[in-house]
Design a protein around this nucleic acid. Sequence first.
DNA 1: GTCAGTGCAAAGCTTTTGCAGCGCG
DNA 2: CGCGCTGCAAAAGCTTTGCACTGAC
Lengths: 155, 155
Amino acid sequence: LSGIIRRVARSKQSRWLEHARGELEHAGHRSGGARSAVLEALDREPCCLTAQEIFDNLRTDGRAVGIASVYRTLELLWNLNLVRRVDIGASACYEPEQPGGEHHHHLVCERCGKVSAFEDARLEDAIQRLGRRLEYKVGEHEVVLRGACPDCRAA
Amino acid sequence: LSGIIRRVARSKQSRWLEHARGELEHAGHRSGGARSAVLEALDREPCCLTAQEIFDNLRTDGRAVGIASVYRTLELLWNLNLVRRVDIGASACYEPEQPGGEHHHHLVCERCGKVSAFEDARLEDAIQRLGRRLEYKVGEHEVVLRGACPDCRAA
DNA sequence: GTCAGTGCAAAGCTTTTGCAGCGCG
DNA sequence: CGCGCTGCAAAAGCTTTGCACTGAC
């Protein structure tokens, strides 16, 4: 499974940062220190980061960003469709939205709390068919599966 | 679509209340006024109620319940697998968990905010296959689709 | 020079916890 | 008649907003 996650997470990584910077500039936004720092943090660890985690990472690296700037940046990126917001449980997490429309969903282990990512063409297909059947124009969608991961099943 | 929702929502409705009361009693819980009121509220409107909505409904009906009791009851019911918790967006919503394992998922219209419910065998099938492929023991799962509902598409 | 971007602090919301008292069994 | 259930109030998160100031263009 970790192999699947890696491939999802790293595939277009370096492209996203450029893409995001370009879209921000194109939308007429200036490039401040805090915003750049959040972009880089998202690019570095591109799956399921909470606002607090981004804030902590930046503080650990000695960046004096405010948590409000993290939230403001995330909201801006979300408005521009540059990040995806996933409600995993308690707090929301954010991750880069790949330009190609490719994305993944999440598995949460209820025993150890670990969050994993997966892609599945059959699932995406079922969702698209469903949208047509219900006459809904489905855009974003999120699938959260909860259960026991292989490690916890074995233990 | 509303036809689908109705069928989902009303099918086993009257059974759930009895079932829940039985399970609570079986688990050694007493039956207080607030808890009964929350059970009845869930049974009356069985799709996607927030804690605040339950609280408001009960207050409107003149029941002097505390919001803490609503949360405490929901947590208890969730521990006993009597309700399902869905993170739709801002706040969580709760709905009766049908004993037969049958359940539905949610569509959120991003324009008008309306939440609809649907069932889809193909989607469930894809999820079960996926669990096997990833060696995950998938229990609960939630699918939230976001998009434009037929009404908003037409407008 | 202007005004978007920023940090800090305070406020808003949802959810949890503490506590004294009531009432189910 | 004990202890579980309850309401109220306070506390504890997560997220948003207000405000003065800084820095990008």
